[in-house]
Amino acid sequence: MDRFLRKKMFDLFKQQPWLAHREEKLNKLIDMCDDISDIDMIFDLLSRFKYVGIESLSIHLRDIVDHINEEFGEEAFSFQLCAATADGDADSGQSILYAFKSEPISEILLEDFILTNSLSRAIKIMDQRKNIILLDEFAGTGETIVSRIKSIRGREKELKNKNNHNFSCKVSVCLVAAMDSAVELIKKYADDVYSSIVLKKGITDEVDFNKRDVSIFRMLSLEESFVKDKKFYRLGYGQSEALYFREKGNIPNNVFPVFWSKNKIDDKNWKPLFYRKE
Rank of each mutant, 00 (worst) to 15 (best):
L273N: 07
K101M: 11
Q239W: 09
Y51D: 01
L19Q: 12
M9W: 01
H60A: 03
T144F: 10
M219K: 02
E111K: 15
S195Q: 12
T141H: 12
W270Q: 05
S261Q: 11
D63M: 07
L110C: 06
D229M: 13
S120L: 14
M32W: 06
R48Y: 01
A177L: 10
M219N: 02
V255A: 03
N210Q: 12
R246H: 00
I203T: 00
V255W: 02
A177P: 07
S147F: 00
D127K: 15
N117D: 13
S78R: 11
M219L: 14
M9K: 08
P257V: 13
T204M: 06
T116Y: 14
F232Y: 15
A182D: 05
L109K: 06
K262M: 08
D66F: 08
Q94Y: 10
I125A: 08
F138T: 09
E137G: 14
P272H: 04
E241A: 05
K160S: 07
D44I: 08
T116N: 06
E223A: 04
D136G: 02
I216H: 05
N161T: 03
L19D: 05
S215D: 07
N163E: 09
K231L: 11
V214A: 12
L243W: 01
I68L: 08
G93P: 06
K271M: 12
Y194C: 03
D87I: 05
R121S: 14
I149P: 04
L273A: 08
D11S: 11
S102A: 11
I108G: 02
K160R: 15
L115M: 15
K7S: 08
I197V: 14
I149R: 07
D191K: 13
H67N: 12
T85N: 10
